[in-house]
Amino acid sequence: MSMLTYTDKVRDHFINPRNVGEMPDATVVGEVGSLASGQALKLYLKLDEGEKIVAASFKVFGSPGAIASSSALTEMLFGKHIDEAARITAEEISTWLGGLPPEKMHACVLSMEALEAAYARFRGIELDAEITEDHELNICRCYGVPEHKIERAIRDHNLTDVAQITHFTLAGGGCTSCHVDLKQILGRVRAEMAPPPPPTPTATKPSRPVTATGSNLQKMQLIQEVLDREVRPGLAMDGGDMELVDVQGTKVYVQLHGHCNSCSSSSATMKFFVQDRLREMVDPAIEVIDTTEHAAELHAPPMR
């Protein structure tokens, strides 16, 4: 372990955390984690009549990453409307801190979950069951992580291996005896997650249902907004269009239509342009994947 793996901003927010402490006159409190799970966060929010966050504070138990990301979150929340605040993702907290090491993402997830809990309580929404009290039901007994939490992390963050599950949820980071179960869950959930649409050369302008789960939906809407505003008008001028097919974690699947469809040389350029816009406006981790079947490619060898 080294302090060097953390950015200066993370270190600063760890050594001098902002807004630590209880808030007796908080409008709403979000609470997640437990002693057994190795980290816990209590987030206090004070809202004005317009539902704007005018004060945020926290109490935390956990790693330097958990302390820093809680501190960061309270700073990010200040002045935001509660609905806008609720859209903050774990990845955004990490980005705000200049990037937390990947294996510390669970700290940002913890902050995001506390925010979610506070929002749900404020709006009177029922959340998924909290970390189960029944130790026997937990997949990872060392950190007390139940299956639904692992499942959600796989979907939300598009996790592909057990190490990533540990980074985002801590599950499997102890005695490792649950790795077999984690692999099984991973296999099942990945199978359930809609795979990127396979190329179907015969299909004519397929329109696929837009699918998303959980907080992905908000992200998807945001991406759609960016496409509508920044990308599609330009394409329309050339007689083309771009469709958002799916969003899985940080992977954004798109398809080109119309004029653009037949122009293979421009599609790569297009992809990077769209990716840059989305990275700037939505999430720096976004990867755009073009699922378009290019008619030209089917008949002619690629140009070299």
């Binding site: 980290q39 138990f61 330097p64 302390i67």
Partner: peptide
């Protein structure tokens, strides 16, 4: 308390 936090 967390050991890494303590150590840092």
């Amino acid at each position: 308390i967390d050991g890494e936090a303590l150590l840092m």
